[in-house]
């Protein structure tokens, strides 16, 4: 087994790690980079708990090799908040009690963020299908969908404000 040296950008920071060439990015992020917010629920791409963005695309990090991250931009749940300012999705998940055990929450947040960036005003059905790759066993998804709806509304409000400010300038 030969190891690989990987240079990557994680949540905006340059990160380097070494890993065996057959190790998943999930294992590398958890065990070598220390980002344990990325969870393993299945290791086979069926539960979404390990969701991250790879060059902006939503992927399961269990279905990516660590070596494939070389030269790529990675986003994880740890990068959602801006300093002490939580992302609207994080705020709304807490406010709407959209988590019980919380193990699926990091994956849901990352997936929902990708959804709202692509589609700022999704319908309930669009939310449900976009999040179908993220399993939650505690909530029955009800409060999760409501939290994403509320976060979308909040983000649209913030974006409007930003746009207005820009105009004024």
């Amino acid at each position: 087994m030969s190891g690989a040296h990987v240079s990557t950008t994680i949540n905006g920071d340059a990160v380097e790690f070494a890993c065996p060439q057959d190790e998943s990015l999930l294992d590398a992020l958890r065990n070598r980079v220390g980002l344990t917010g990325v969870k393993e629920g299945c290791g086979t791409g069926d539960c979404g708990a390990c969701s991250i963005t790879l060059d902006g695309r939503l992927v399961c990090s269990c279905l990516v090799l660590g070596v494939e991250a070389n030269g790529k931009q990675i986003g994880t749940v740890e990068g959602l908040a801006d300093g002490d300012q939580l992302h609207p999705l994080q705020e709304k998940f807490i406010e709407h009690a959209a988590l019980q055990c919380g193990i699926c929450t990091p994956g849901f947040l990352v997936a929902a963020k990708v959804l709202l960036e692509r589609n700022p005003d999704p319908s309930e059905t669009e939310i449900r299908y976009a999040l179908a790759g993220n399993l939650c066993r505690c909530t029955g998804y009800d409060k999760i969908v409501r939290a994403v709806q509320a976060a979308g509304k909040e983000m649209r409000k913030q974006n409007k404000k930003k746009a207005k400010k820009k105009k004024k300038k």
Binding site: V77, L86, G102
Partner: peptide
Amino acid sequence: TRVKRPDGIDKVTGRARYGAD
């Protein structure tokens, strides 16, 4: 009343430590 849970921030930021963490 519907207060915010005390472990909420830990769980939405990935900080909460589970069995494998």
